Amino acid sequence: MTMHFSVLASGSTGNAFYVETEEQAFLVDAGLSGKQMEALFTTIGRDMSKLSGILVTHEHSDHIKGLGVVARKHKLPIYANEKTWQAMERSIGEISLDQKFTFDMEEVKTFGSLDIESFGVSHDAAEPMFYVFHHEDQKLVLVTDTGYVSDRMKGIISNADTYIFESNHDVGMLRMGRYPWSVKRRILSDIGHVSNEDAAVAMSEVTGDRTKRIYLAHLSIDNNIKDLARMSVEQTLQTKGIITGEQFSLFDTDPKKPTELVMV
């Protein structure tokens, strides 16, 4: 009994994540167009109509752009907390009542042998939350879109097999970049996004003996580069006594191409 996953798309332009067990298959967010979402599923050799449901993290468009289209086409259940439902209803269009489900923050829902645990993050959305997937003795954590990683979050996400972890921006690139100061201030704030270095510090505090893979996710298209993110994370981890490649490996994600479908 194993759990597999793919980061279908990750970045400031759109986000989607797929996870499956033998009996269940879930999409987390649908932040690209319906057509793009279908193409991503084709790339990993999966059928969107076979999904058990879609989990929503928050209402920002790079997470829900194709949500309504995909859910209506394949008649899929959508899971989100009440405040997120209220915040996104206008954006996603009409969803029939039998497809609308509430998934509260800090709740665990069980789908066969898969337990899905939600936890709150610090981001400028109505009630943003991400997910931990527990299956048999496997633990998979998805955490992006947070201004910082709180002690409470660290307790929930500690010692997972695999992390999909935000590494949004290089602080120097952001400060020197073309964004207006109000946007820069928002990104750098406690309700924005974590930088490469801050992500690495948090990783050093939550990874454990079982951790094998970390995927650097939600990279800003304007304020980060894959090589720079990996180098910054590796260097910061090294100052904490962690040599990547020995305890765990780092992987890239992409805004347009899915990662290989692999076991947790």
Rank of each mutant, 00 (worst) to 15 (best):
E59M: 05
T236F: 10
S49G: 05
T13H: 12
M129T: 05
L261M: 15
H193S: 13
T244E: 02
L51E: 02
V108P: 14
K184P: 08
I116K: 07
G155N: 10
S96P: 14
F251A: 05
G53V: 01
K139V: 10
I214M: 04
K73A: 07
E22D: 15
I116Y: 02
S12W: 01
A25Y: 02
D124P: 13
N224V: 08
E22M: 13
T259L: 11
L32T: 13
K257R: 13
T239V: 10
S189M: 04
T102L: 10
G45Y: 13
V149T: 07
S91I: 07
G172C: 08
N168I: 12
D227V: 11
V69F: 12
N223I: 00
L142G: 00
H123C: 08
S91E: 15
T84C: 14
V56M: 06
L140E: 08
M1C: 08
L250P: 08
V264T: 07
Q36S: 13
A16M: 14
I221A: 12
D145V: 07
D124M: 12
S204A: 15
L228V: 04
W181A: 07
V262K: 14
T102R: 11
A80M: 06
A160E: 10
D124A: 15
V141R: 00
I64V: 14
E260P: 02
I44E: 14
E82S: 13
P128L: 07
E166L: 11
E38H: 10
I187M: 15
V56Y: 05
E89L: 13
Q99N: 14
K73R: 15
Q138P: 01
K83D: 15
H135A: 02
E234M: 08
Y131T: 05
F101I: 11
V108E: 13
H218W: 05
G241I: 06
K100D: 06
D161M: 10
Q24W: 03
F17V: 06
Y179H: 10
R230E: 09
S158I: 06
G192S: 06
